[in-house]
């Protein structure tokens, strides 16, 4: 097998002195599309941050066979100040910045890439709008454009479908499927039902990690994996499979 893009071995991650991930191993290969699922507080975001180098593991190792700026990243919505005085175009262009460059003005190729990214996410009309005046969906589109503008080798998305409209959700996953032809994707989600048709494999994260080499998973398996999430089934008739209450 080829060398993995990311190779995590026996990694422990602590957040404010509390162990949130314990003895995790995961290899991410080119063209993977891994859905990272698990309960809230189970360590999904910490895993992402460890891969990005934003959190230092307290044990084990994370090896990259690429540079951090070859990763496109869409953070969880609450990470940035949504009233910061910055426009859609400026946010998207920040995905092209690399290292410390002193520059005045903009270049043709930079402008071209920004236009193309705006077009991809359907925000052409709003390019000069401050982010404070965007809807939840428009904001996520902006963040997605910032993540993909540099044509990254690996794309990591942390709950990209929070606060977005249904239309964007559908467009988003169709776009990701298209991008996955050339880009490796890690997608954090709380909703395995929605992402299931698009992802190739599943990683269940709840302090430990269980890798599941298929895009379908049953509730029994989730239980075995210590991954207590609700499975929300999506079909023509919306229904929801909710775990039985256990009475003691």
């Amino acid at each position: 097998m080829s060398t993995p893009l990311i190779e995590i071995k026996n990694m422990d991650v602590a957040y404010q002195k509390q162990l949130v991930l314990s003895n995790i191993s995961l290899s991410v290969f080119e063209h993977d599309f891994i859905g990272i699922i698990g309960p809230n507080g189970g360590g999904k975001t910490s895993l992402v941050k460890a891969i990005l180098g934003l959190l230092k593991p307290v044990g084990g190792s994370v090896k990259h066979s690429m540079n951090s700026w070859e990763i496109g990243y869409l953070p969880q919505g609450n990470q940035v100040d949504e009233n910061f005085p910055i426009t859609v175009k400026e946010v998207i262009a920040s995905g092209l910045e690399h290292g410390l460059k002193m520059r005045l003005g903009t270049t043709k190729s930079r402008q071209h890439k920004v236009e193309k990214a705006l077009e991809t996410v359907g925000l052409k009309a709003l390019h000069s709008r401050p982010i404070g005046e965007l809807s939840g969906g428009e904001f996520q589109r902006t963040m997605l454009a910032r993540a993909i503008i540099s044509s990254p080798r690996l794309l990591i998305l942390d709950e990209p479908d929070t606060h977005v409209d249904n239309q964007f959700e559908t467009e988003l996953y169709a776009l990701l499927k298209e991008l996955n032809k050339t880009i490796t994707i890690l997608l954090v989600s709380h909703d395995i039902g929605i992402i299931s048709p698009y992802i190739k494999t599943i990683a269940c994260v709840n302090r430990d990690l269980h890798y599941h080499a298929s895009n379908e998973i049953s509730e029994e398996q989730l239980k075995v994996y210590n991954c207590p999430i609700e499975i929300i089934a999506h079909g023509p008739v919306p229904h929801r499979v909710i775990k039985e209450h256990i009475h003691k």
Binding site: S68, I71, E90, V91, E97, G99, K101, L104
Partner: peptide
């Protein structure tokens, strides 16, 4: 602020993303 306008803006807006992009 003229020469480092972009890095300053990007770091101020989203420090973690700026770090991933290799901005000091």
């Amino acid at each position: 602020f003229t020469l480092l306008y972009r890095p300053i803006l990007y770091v101020s807006f989203d420090e973690q993303f700026a770090r991933i992009r290799g901005i000091p």
